[in-house]
Design a protein around this nucleic acid. Structure first.
Lengths: 229, 229
DNA sequence: GTGGTATGTATACAACTGTCTACTTAATGT
DNA sequence: ACATTAAGTAGACAGTTGTATACATACCAC
């Protein structure tokens, strides 16, 4: 009755990476079909080719699984971004396009994770949203440090720089979805995104240089320059 | 057996606005709990105080209901935005803050609808996403016309203006969530958003004036101006 | 070897789900 | 006056869900 070394045994424990298979299955379902919170426990196990109860061995709830996904994504992204920071010692002109291209390519290589992440950033699970916002804030902080280190826009106050970075990172994060889903427009998306960042920096530097706080002040003080059309 | 004019009769038809009650119930559930696609037909009917089957009298599917919600929201928003366009004939300096404040207040008055809309913009129902993106594109187009009419930044090429408007409208749309959910930070959110728009316009106008396409070109040609720190 | 722990499976159950069929009533057009 | 249609309810069906209990196997420390 007892098969001694049967590898084809279908019951009993098989210490194959069940945890990872569950995560991958969740990403697959989350990216294509529904949001993570509407994920069915059984549907998930089915997709992963596991018994429904196996889920409980690894996670206490679906939110816990989602957290694990975000953690993993964040870790990967941060690591790779640190990698590119080393690579780009090139002139100031190259910093933005290189970084943007890298993030987009990274997203294109992990499409499911990014689709889920962008979706859950505005989702209904507070824990997940907080985790994602923290991740974005961290990346923005790294961007602040990079900009200061590379000496781009030395005039910029740190507070302004922080605001800009936050907006830029958030925008790029959202743009990854278009980049993933519209392969034909990818070069255009990269171009527009870089241009957007450049314009934002240019505007911030200009307003700071002219010490203008509002649009009206800016137009007053740059009248001779701007009206030269 | 047959009550002749019984108003307290519990069975049979009661032409009360069942359709509207279903929409409101969907908004309530969608805003607080899950995304629209994970909405349960029975759960929805229960929340609306109706029989599950009543749903089929008005909608063929949950996607159809969602479409109705977006249509309604879009109609309201466009109408009100057209209203404010008439009001703000004040100087250029007032156009941006007034519009931003108005949109935020409108969002704060329809929180459920906006929470659902922002969520579904990145959701898994393609029809809904397209409808929302079209709505955003329409609002952006109106913004282009307003900017041209009010003669803000006449130097700007229409293509550039379109790109900027798209980014601005999308950003404001996303920001409504923070505005709704963080009442304490509302003045700050308005200030930061207006400042972001101003900086973006300033940068676009500057780059166009100096005929710079990239950051490097800009820094070259404005070196005497910018380095004056 | 022996016992514990981690990982996996099988089965069972009550609750809930979407949808079908059938019935009731109010409003409406001719 | 009457047939049609729109808008509602009731009840039943099979399928799915989350979870609890019980069992099986691999690995690891000692």
């Amino acid at each position: 009755m007892s098969r001694t070394k049967a590898t084809e045994d279908l019951t009993g424990a098989a210490p194959a990476g069940g945890r990872q298979r569950l995560i991958q299955a969740a990403l697959r379902i989350g990216a294509s079909r529904r949001s993570l919170q509407s994920l069915g426990l059984r549907e998930l196990a089915r997709e992963a080719g596991l018994n429904p109860n196996t889920f409980y061995r690894h996670f206490g709830s679906l939110e816990e699984l989602s957290q694990a996904i975000i953690d993993e994504l964040g870790r990967d992204l941060r690591t790779n971004l640190r990698g590119i920071r080393r690579t780009v010692r090139s002139p100031v002109a190259e910093a933005t396009p290189r970084t943007v291209e890298y993030v987009f390519d990274f997203a294109a290589r992990n499409p499911d994770a990014f689709i889920v992440a962008v979706r859950e950033l505005h989702g209904a699970m507070p824990g997940l949203r907080d985790a994602l916002q923290r991740m974005i804030a961290d990346v923005a902080q790294e961007m602040v440090e990079d900009v200061q280190f590379l000496n781009i826009g030395p005039q910029l106050e740190e507070a302004t720089l922080r605001d800009i970075s936050q907006v830029v990172v958030t925008h790029v994060f959202h743009q990854t979805l278009d980049y993933i889903e519209q392969p034909g427009r990818r070069p255009q998306i990269v171009r527009q995104t870089v241009r957007f960042i450049d314009m934002l920096f240019a505007g911030a530097m200009l307003m700071q240089t002219v010490k203008a706080e509002t649009m009206a002040e800016l137009l007053e003080r740059t009248a001779p320059l701007m009206q030269r059309t």
